[in-house]
């Protein structure tokens, strides 16, 4: 007798979600569950009971691809959350649509460039004033 159990990873351990006696139905359902993105991990475990020996053999026949994606997705979420916490002012309680990345901010112009332009304007202005005074003294 064979049974195919779908397990989902919840609360730090694998839990039985449903049981099928048909391999194709179990794998199809597991793939569908994985596609829903509701579960961190989905797997199908085949249990074969040998009536002669009264023993059950267990093997995993499927584990969803979200197994590989779970850690990077979680890390990305934590990074986004950390950035959001730094950028938000104290006491701010604004909301953002889940999954929607904030619009990139425009890069601020360099302060050094602004100081240089301002310095040139000041120097040119002072020079012009000195020149006008000299000209007015001659006249």
């Amino acid at each position: 007798m064979r049974a195919f159990e779908i397990h989902t990873f919840q609360g730090g351990k694998w839990k039985i979600d449903s049981v099928f006696d048909d391999r194709d139905l179990a794998v199809f359902e597991a793939q569908r569950m994985e596609g829903s993105k509701r579960y961190v991990g989905v797997r199908v475990v085949e249990e074969t009971f040998d009536e002669k020996t009264q023993q059950t053999a267990v093997r995993t026949i499927y584990k969803g691809t979200s197994v590989d994606n779970a850690a990077p997705i979680e890390q990305k979420k934590q990074q986004v959350a950390a950035k959001g916490a730094k950028a938000a002012p104290k006491g701010a309680t604004g909301t953002r649509r889940p999954g929607k990345a904030p619009a990139p901010k425009k890069a601020p112009k360099s302060n050094g460039l602004l100081i240089a332009i301002f310095s040139i304007i000041v120097v040119v202005g002072i020079g012009a004033m000195v020149a006008l005074r000299m000209l007015s003294g001659k006249m």
Binding site: V40, G41, Y62, K63, G64, V67, E74
Partner: peptide, 17 residues
């Protein structure tokens, strides 16, 4: 969101359903 154990490996079904 929780994470799977580090030793968890992906197992795919190779034959078409």
């Amino acid at each position: 969101m929780e994470r799977l154990p580090a030793e968890t490996e992906k197992i795919e079904v190779t034959d078409a359903l």
